[in-house]
Design a protein around this nucleic acid. Sequence first.
DNA 1: ATGAAAGCGCTAACAC
DNA 2: GTGTTAGCGCTTTCAT
Lengths: 324, 324
Amino acid sequence: MTRPAKRITSVDVARAAGVSQTTVSFVLNDKPGHSIPEATRLRILEVARQLDYRPHGSARALAAGRSDIVLLSVPDLPIGGAISRFIEEMAAALADQGLALVTHLAGAHGRPLADVCAMVNATVVIGFTSFDEDTVQALYRAGADVVLPSHFSHDEAGRPVGHLQAEYLIGRGHRRIGYAMPAHPGLREMAEDRLAGVTDACAGAGIEPPVVLSTSLEIAAAAAAVGVWTSQSVTAVCAFNDETAIALLAGLRVQGLAAPAHLAVIGVDDIPTARLAAPPLTTIAFDLREAGRGRAEMIMASLAGREPDGAGQQHWKLVARASA
Amino acid sequence: MTRPAKRITSVDVARAAGVSQTTVSFVLNDKPGHSIPEATRLRILEVARQLDYRPHGSARALAAGRSDIVLLSVPDLPIGGAISRFIEEMAAALADQGLALVTHLAGAHGRPLADVCAMVNATVVIGFTSFDEDTVQALYRAGADVVLPSHFSHDEAGRPVGHLQAEYLIGRGHRRIGYAMPAHPGLREMAEDRLAGVTDACAGAGIEPPVVLSTSLEIAAAAAAVGVWTSQSVTAVCAFNDETAIALLAGLRVQGLAAPAHLAVIGVDDIPTARLAAPPLTTIAFDLREAGRGRAEMIMASLAGREPDGAGQQHWKLVARASA
DNA sequence: ATGAAAGCGCTAACAC
DNA sequence: GTGTTAGCGCTTTCAT
């Protein structure tokens, strides 16, 4: 641990460069209209660099009325670690526009989102879940300029995924499909959306709606579900996510059965252990990079006052392996 | 999307409560020394609640010199999703002390940590990795009051885990141990630390140091490693983490071998799919809750100027299952 | 082309 | 007990 170094202010830079603080501000933000001689400009830039000057965020935000901080709210859900890729992509795209992204984990015992929003003085607040109306209002009152509840409406978010899953299964000749809901209550909403997609696909193919069963990540529970499906001559099941799917695979194993012969299984996410499953898991992957960039785009559009035009393109793609 | 609501300031509260803005400030921060009549106090509190007033973070930070914001830096590593539990626990503990936690994902293309620190005006910056000296200085210059590079020094962080793994294996009678390093370069440092713990334990038990092999998450690579170990009469291997361990299990499977009969395997993390592996994976779990609380404690101690006394107790515990 | 000065919303001495 | 006042470091309007 080392002794703290004193913070450099723009006055320090001004003094060192022999100009007024105002000029420093103009140069550093390269404000238009104030044509400053190239020589002065460069000198100021150099001095600032040398001093490792960094504008005081609070002061800047207070004066300018915008903090350029984007606050991302991540819900308290067992969402995979892959989400970090998505966040990073978004952060990178935002950084190019001078915005900084910080994340708030929504945990029940933490500070309410609106509090954090007010404390960091976020200019933009975005989330995965759809904020309810009260939250949105609170965020605006907390000083946010734009609030983007969630990129996709429920209907758009889950449907394509479920659709892709079922489509693949149906394409492989399955006529009686099952759906494995996760036991975790927080995942319910997301699961319902995905299930809707599966149901759609079934209807489109003229087959019966899926046989829906809920299962935990315990082998016994999964085995029980497997038993029910097979007894009802279901030949393939769409799992809410890869973890659920892997549980199903384990459930099959303890019953002396195997995928895809006795029951085809398809997941969602393509987590690292998916390819290591026995048999390797067929699943739906998400293009985090594209999704992150797309999201950043939306934010910029909203800030600029344009209506976010993003057609909300989906970024899902199938990864065929042995389990289905 | 709804129309933004205007932001409430403490002047609004003062006016509505019929007192001066100063009084509002005193009451809301319940400053000592200024004994304000209970009636006034309650009225102000009530009005603030009704108006859903939230202090302007930037203004507060600028005036007070502290933002009460804790910035957590998470490195761009494939660390499991379980990390969110840890973060939430920390956030909860910090919230109790009036501090707000926000997270910065370190990705290479995002904004440098010091920039974010300056923008949000973080009072405290903490991280998982150990910041280098330059970074620490930059953070102090960026306005941080306390910087906690990483809770554990390298030596403390990994050693106990590796030690626990090896100890368990040795206790089960194994005399020739292997160690599975992850292929991901960013994980190297962490892996070296854990390996050191394994080596320690072996030395302590008077057996040879582990046979170290590196393996990716591809089944083929894992199978190859398994081949090498068995050919060298290694009977048990400590994997860097559960994903690596599960890859090893898959590698055994394709060779027609099984754990623990042909090769015992032990992981680290207890990820959700660990119990679903074939056979269920023996592993070392981490008590996220305790670790998070402990970390928050350290932060508060540092802020109070006390030397963080936390004996850095470890929070690892063994989860015995079938694979070892 | 450059600088002086007025705030942004809040905290904290210091008066009354 | 409560209010007045002077900044915190920056942006931005308006003079020069």
